[in-house]
Simulated assay, not measured.
Amino acid sequence: MMTFNDIVEGIKSLSTNEKEEIQSLLQQYLREERRDKIYESFQAAQKEQQQGNLKFSNQIDELKQLIDE
C-alpha cells in the first residue's frame, strides 16, 4: 500500500500536464464530496421536518430564543 509520502513523491515526478490533470481531478473530487455532504444535510433536514423537529419563525426575538435552545 502506498503512503501519503509515496504519492507526493510520485506526483513530483510527473510532467506539468499530468500535475495539472491531477489538480483538476482533485478539484472535481472535492466538489463531489461537498455536494454529497450538502445533499446528506438536506436529507437530514427533510427528515427532521417530517418528524416535526424543526421550528420556524419570522420574529427576531423568537429566533434568538430558538438559537439559545
Rank of each mutant, 00 (worst) to 15 (best):
N53W: 06
L54V: 00
L30Y: 02
S41C: 04
L14V: 09
E40D: 12
F42G: 10
K55H: 13
E62Q: 04
K55Y: 11
S24V: 05
I7R: 02
Y29L: 12
R35T: 09
Y39A: 11
E9V: 02
R35D: 10
F4E: 14
E40I: 02
D61K: 00
S15P: 03
Q23W: 05
E62P: 00
Y29N: 09
R31H: 06
E69F: 10
L54Y: 03
N5Q: 11
T3V: 04
E33L: 11
I67P: 02
L30N: 10
N53S: 04
R31D: 12
Q51E: 15
D68W: 08
D6Y: 00
S24L: 07
K12T: 06
D61Y: 10
G10T: 06
M2W: 03
Q43L: 12
N58T: 07
E62M: 02
L30K: 12
S15V: 01
D68H: 15
I11N: 05
N58W: 01
A44H: 07
I7C: 02
Q43H: 03
L14K: 10
L14S: 09
Q59C: 09
K12P: 03
K37S: 11
L14C: 11
E18Q: 03
Y29R: 12
K37P: 01
L14F: 08
A44Q: 12
Q50M: 13
E18S: 01
Y29A: 13
D36H: 04
R35Y: 02
I7Y: 00
I22G: 03
N53L: 04
D6S: 00
I67Q: 11
L26N: 05
L66H: 14
E40V: 01
L14I: 09
Q46Y: 03
F42W: 10
K37C: 08
S13H: 05
K64H: 10
E20Q: 14
